[in-house]
Simulated scan of single mutants.
Amino acid sequence: DYINRKVPGTDKYYKIILKINGKSIEFDSNRPETKLNKGEQMFNGVEVPFYAIEYAPTFPECDSELNEERKKCTSQTISRFVNRNFNTELAKDLNLKGRQRIHVIFKISKEGDIIDVKARAPHPELEKEAIRVINALPKMIPGEQKGKKVNVPYTLPIVF
């Protein structure tokens, strides 16, 4: 099917621009490469959030046919990894008191690598430590949407 349609009664076509996660995908019916074949081109370079992905990215030990089990195991494995590898003594060294909250956003690439890690924390050293730990995560089995491997953004709050 074509995503672009001819304007009825004219020789003119219109194009559709989809905005998904801040990225624009333009479909112009005058260009043959914009014909969609059962979603083949729809997910090229597009990100699908972890909560909405059809086949969630995961670690080899979490590989299951049931997507909800994959998601749960992946989330637990990431949390365990962070808990074991994050240097919590850093807060004491920086004279930070009380509960520390760090917000981390990263992507699991369509190759299964961790990319685009960003962190927000009350101190730059905590941000650096969070980024270090997330970048140390092992390679994963990539996520898939409509049978195509896609980048999957993942948000992780770290509280200690």
Rank of each mutant, 00 (worst) to 15 (best):
P32A: 06
I20F: 08
G143K: 02
G45Y: 03
E111K: 13
K128M: 12
G112Y: 01
V48K: 08
V46Q: 05
G39C: 04
R80G: 13
T34L: 01
Y13E: 06
F106G: 07
K110D: 12
D1H: 14
Y55M: 14
P60A: 03
T155D: 13
T88P: 02
A136F: 06
I131W: 00
V133I: 02
E61N: 11
L156F: 04
P142W: 00
L94A: 08
L156R: 10
E47G: 07
R31G: 00
V150M: 00
H103F: 12
R101P: 03
E125W: 01
V159L: 12
Q100L: 15
R31I: 15
T88W: 13
K128D: 10
F43Y: 07
L96I: 13
N135G: 09
V104I: 14
I17W: 00
K110L: 14
E129R: 03
K110Q: 11
D28S: 03
N87E: 06
K149T: 06
D63L: 15
R101I: 06
D11C: 06
Q145P: 00
V104H: 10
H123Y: 05
G112M: 02
V7I: 09
K23S: 12
D116Q: 11
I3Y: 09
I134W: 11
R5K: 10
P157D: 05
F50C: 13
M42E: 05
I53Y: 00
I17Y: 03
G147P: 13
N4S: 09
F160W: 05
T58W: 00
P49Y: 09
Y2K: 13
K35T: 14
C73W: 01
K35W: 13
E47L: 03
E111I: 01
T88Y: 13
R5C: 06
S24D: 14
V159S: 13
A136V: 07
N21Y: 09
K149F: 05
K92E: 07
P32L: 08
S109K: 02
R84D: 08
M42T: 08
I134S: 04
V82F: 02
Y13W: 07
H123M: 06
T88M: 12
R101D: 14
R99F: 11
Q41K: 12
